[in-house]
Amino acid sequence: MNLIKLLDSMCPDTNSAEDKDRFYSRRDAFRQFGDFSKKVAMAAVPLGVLNAIPHVAKADTASLIGVLNYALTLEHLEYRYYQMGLDSGVIEAPERVIFQKIRDHELAHVKFLQEVIANVLMGTPVAEPGFDFTAGGNFSPFTDYPTFLALSQAFEDTGVRAYKGQAANVQESDVVLTAALSIHSVEARHASMVRRLRTKKGQDTVKGWITNGSIGTLPAATTAIYAGEENLTHGGVNVSTATGIDAAAVSEGWDEPLSKDAVLGIASLFLAS
C-alpha cells in the first residue's frame, strides 16, 4: 500500500482552516444529535420528543436513513429465516433455544431500526421484501437441518461484514454508530455460535472465527461471503510479517468489511423474484 498516500489522507495538513471549522461545527451538531437521541432511542422511544432534536442537514439524515434501511433489509432477511426455521420444525430440539435467541435478536433489530428510521430520523423504513430461501430451488433449509445451519452461518458472517462495511458511513452520528456497533457484535456472537455448532455436529471443521478466506464445507455459492477474509495487512502493517504469527491465525484475528453492493449481491440470491 502507498504509505505516503495513507498518511496524507489521515492528516489534516491539506485542509484549509475554513474546512476544519466547517468540519468541527458539523461534527458538533451531530454530537448533540447523538447525545440526545441516545436517550430516546435506547429507551424504547417515546415519540413526542422529536422537535427537540437539533437541526441536522437533510443530506446527512438521508444518508443515515439509507444505511439503516440497508441494515433493516438484512435484518428482515435474518428474522424471517429464523422464524421460518423455527416454524418448520427442522431445528433439532436441544438447539431450538439457540435459534430462538438469535430469532429474538433479529426481530429486536428489525423493530429498533424501524423505530430509529421512522421516529428519530423521520424517514420511511423499507418494507420486508419477499424471500425465497431455497434460492430458486437450490437449497432446502427448512427440511434439511445441515442446510439450515449452513445458510445460518452464511447469513451471520455476511451480517458482520455488512455492518462493518457501513461503520464509516454512519460515523457522523454517535448514536447511530454506537447502535450499529452494538448490533454488529451481536451478529458476530451469533456467527461464532453457529460456526462452532456446525463443527461440533461433524458438518464442517470451521472454528468460531474465520480462517483465511475459507468457506469450509459451505456451498460454492458462498465464496463471495468469505472473499478477502484472508487479509493480513491493517493500516499498512502486515501483521503476520511483523509478529511472526502464522497467517491463518492473523487472518482469524481481524474480520473484514464488505461493500453494500457485494452484500446485496449475496442477499439477492434469496429475494423472491
Binding site: 455492518y163 462493518k164 460515523q171 454506537t178 451481536v186 451469533h190 468460531g208 491493517h234 482469524e252 468489511p257
Partner: peptide, 26 residues
C-alpha cells in the same frame, strides 16, 4: 468507537471487535 475521528481507525477497531465477540461467544 464514537470517539474515533479517523474512519481508518474506526474500521480497524471494527475488524477487531467482531473477533472479540466471536471469542466471547465461544
Amino acid at each position: 468507537g464514537q470517539f474515533l475521528e479517523s474512519p481508518d481507525f474506526l474500521l480497524i477497531a471494527g475488524k477487531i471487535v467482531s473477533v472479540e465477540a466471536r471469542h466471547a461467544a465461544a
